[in-house]
Computed example of a mutant assay.
Amino acid sequence: MYGSSPNSMTANGSDSKKQRLDESPPSRVLHIRKLPNEVSETEVIALGLPFGKVTNILMLKGKNQAFLELGTEEAAVTMVNYYTAVTPQVRNTPVFIQYSNHKELKTDSALNQRAQAVLQAVSAVQDGSSPSSDPGVLDLTPPPSPVLRIIIDNMFYPVTLDVLQQIFSKFGTVMKIITFTKNNQFQALLQFSDPVNAQQAKLSLDGQNIYNSCCTLRIDFSKLVNVNVKYNNDKSRDYTRPDLPTGDGESTNKDHSLLDGTHPQRNSFASHGSI
């Protein structure tokens, strides 16, 4: 078992947390606690990506914890200092980061294959080489936009704007959504407040089913950096502008010209299958 004692792992007092943080010497291995259930390796790695090379990760999913190893102690210190001033969040849930008592992570690669595959993709991007073409290796290039373009495949049940907002808001603040039909496919443009949130949502949800065995999400970054929403109705919504009119059901956006022909989806489902 890596990290500190079980008692210190589960301590909840903010004073004791601050004391441990102050007493722990800097290490390039960071201990991350209070992670949401079913969090992915990519979401944890995304916390460290802005600060430098991520060299190893160990997930303790039963304990909602993880250990993240950065390439240098300096990068880890920068990360801890940043997240001391700004509360780190995963899926809109605050998490706690402190230095580990260990100076490096030694993991069994046979038991840690998924994490190693993700790290290989990260290394390829950070080293400037081409990421693996293996579809099982996730692309972790820096997010180009806070706007995601979403296509729903195998759509046996209606997918409403509210359902999309509920699913994607787990990863950050959803500001705007436009839904439309193009090439006989239900699509959406969804804008987060931060490109990193869009990246985390794409990494976690791309290829997932909204309902059991159907309504598969296909997600890419949009060329847009901002979505223009004119009306708040069943097909489009700007959550930052509750004063917008409902309009006549039409919504427009310069990214495409085939937004008409979309029919409002009024059925909503409480259960979201595998998500």
Rank of each mutant, 00 (worst) to 15 (best):
S5W: 03
S8E: 07
M9P: 03
A11N: 07
N12A: 13
G13I: 08
D15I: 14
Q19M: 11
S24V: 12
S24C: 11
P26C: 08
V29H: 00
L30R: 01
H31V: 13
R33V: 12
R33E: 06
K34M: 10
K34L: 13
K34H: 09
E41I: 05
A46P: 02
L47N: 03
L49K: 11
L49N: 06
K53V: 15
K53E: 08
V54Q: 04
L60Y: 09
K61W: 04
K63M: 08
N64C: 12
A66W: 02
A66I: 04
G71P: 03
G71T: 06
A75S: 09
T78N: 09
M79V: 07
Y83C: 09
A85K: 09
N92Q: 15
N92D: 11
T93P: 09
V95A: 01
Q98H: 14
Y99H: 12
Y99S: 04
H102T: 04
H102R: 03
T107M: 05
L111T: 13
N112D: 05
N112C: 13
A115M: 05
Q116F: 08
A117P: 04
L119A: 03
V122P: 01
D127G: 09
D127Q: 15
D127Y: 15
G128D: 09
P131V: 14
P131T: 09
S132V: 13
S133W: 05
D134M: 05
P135S: 02
G136T: 13
G136N: 05
G136A: 13
V137S: 05
L140F: 10
T141D: 03
S145A: 14
V147M: 07
V147N: 04
L148P: 07
I152A: 01
F156C: 08
F156R: 06
F156K: 11
F156T: 05
D162C: 10
L164S: 00
L164Y: 00
Q166F: 14
F168E: 00
F168R: 00
F168D: 00
F168Y: 08
S169W: 13
S169P: 05
F171G: 05
G172L: 00
G172R: 00
G172Q: 00
T173C: 12
V174A: 03
M175W: 00
I177F: 02
K182G: 07
N183W: 14
F186A: 11
Q187D: 09
A188R: 02
L189Q: 02
L189D: 00
L190E: 01
L190G: 00
P195R: 05
Q200I: 07
L205I: 13
D206F: 12
G207V: 14
S213C: 13
S213I: 15
S213Q: 09
C214D: 01
C215F: 07
R218G: 13
D220Y: 08
K223V: 15
K223N: 15
L224D: 03
V225L: 06
N226D: 12
N226Y: 15
N228S: 09
N228W: 03
N228M: 03
V229R: 00
V229L: 02
N232I: 14
N232E: 02
D234F: 14
R237G: 01
T240C: 14
R241F: 12
D243K: 09
D243L: 05
P245N: 04
G247S: 04
G247N: 07
D248N: 10
S251C: 08
S251G: 04
T252S: 10
N253S: 05
K254P: 13
H256P: 03
H256C: 06
S257V: 12
D260L: 14
H263A: 13
R266Y: 14
